[in-house]
Design a protein around this nucleic acid. Structure first.
Length: 295
DNA sequence: TTGCAGGGGTCAA
DNA sequence: TTGACCCCTGCA
């Protein structure tokens, strides 16, 4: 069966998608954009997306996804893995200098996942002033406590909780998930969205700046978290989330001096234009994995 | 063993 | 513009 240029075989348990380019699961799942994909001993990745648990492996240009089928490929995975986008072309366009050449070579298999907007809002509120392993633990605990149970391959997994589930809880209860001072932001945010005070369905129709303004009405969401939410939900690609790592790599490799977050964002958005978000992801992964600016 | 700094920012003063 | 902030890890 062919679907939008990909040849897909399904056997009732899994699908194999051939002709996948510009994809490497390590680059994609370890580049800081997602928190719920876990590397298995055999090198495959298992993750929860929407109501599904799947296991994924990649070899010889073949993307094999277990516990799914062709209908779900069309409905979920094609968009989720951004398979309609030509990353070869994107990379060429943002490879403007030697820095980007190195960063892109290093993370050549990064794809920006189109993840659930609500899940990104909560996840990146938890990310503020926090470390990745800790963020993952907290999110997992939140799913365990407030999500729905899914059984797969002898293990129990949990879906990401609904807006209603988190708006109905109270801060003290959420705090057992070890989210610290961010818990009050998450509960308040859930309530503002549930009540309709902040409308997150309209973000697609707004400019990136306006969409950011809407998101920043939510407690715990500032410029950086807002950019992450927009980028990793596939809502806007011209944003340039500037955290401490991106700040460091930009200072060291572009500015050659101290520069403010504001200045860096502005520069990047002018330099990379509508593809700034992609550039950020290669730069972030390159900086963090190589400890650029850390010493 | 204990103690302390600091982290993929945001908020409030 | 600057400190506090939950919790945890790394390192004296």
């Amino acid at each position: 069966m062919e679907y939008k240029g990909y040849i897909i075989n399904e056997d009732g348990k899994s699908i194999k998608v051939t002709n996948i380019k510009d994809f490497n699961p390590v680059h994609t799942f370890e580049c800081g954009q997602c928190f719920r994909w876990r590397r298995q001993k055999d090198g495959s990745y298992t993750g929860v997306v929407r109501e599904k648990v799947v296991n994924l492996r990649f070899y010889d240009g073949i993307l094999e996804i277990s516990n799914t089928n062709l209908d779900e490929f069309k409905d979920i995975w094609f968009d989720y893995f951004d398979l309609g986008r030509d990353y070869t072309d994107i990379k060429q366009k943002i490879m403007k200098d030697e820095v980007m050449e190195k960063a892109i070579a290093f993370g050549s298999g990064i794809r920006l996942l189109k993840q659930d907007l609500w899940e990104m809002i909560v996840s990146f509120i938890f990310s503020a002033n926090n470390r990745i392993p800790m963020i993952m633990k907290t999110i997992e605990a939140v799913c365990r406590k407030y999500g729905n149970k899914i059984e797969y391959d002898g293990n129990t997994y949990f879906t990401f909780p609904s807006i209603d589930a988190l708006s109905a809880t109270d801060v003290q209860e959420l705090e057992v998930c070890r989210g610290g001072f961010r818990c009050k932001y998450v509960v308040e945010t859930a309530r503002k969205i549930a009540s309709g005070e902040v409308d997150i369905k309209e973000l697609n129709n707004l400019s990136a700046d306006k969409a950011g303004e809407v998101l920043m009405k939510l407690p715990g969401v500032g410029p950086k978290v807002s950019d992450c939410i927009l980028l990793y939900s596939g809502t806007k690609y011209e944003v340039f989330p500037t955290d401490v790592w991106v700040k460091r790599v930009m200072q060291e490799l572009y500015f050659k001096r101290e520069a403010s977050i504001r200045e860096i964002r502005k520069f990047a958005q002018e330099y990379f234009g509508e593809l700034a978000g992609f550039a950020q992801q290669y730069l972030f992964y390159y900086a963090r994995e190589n400890g650029i600016g850390a010493g």
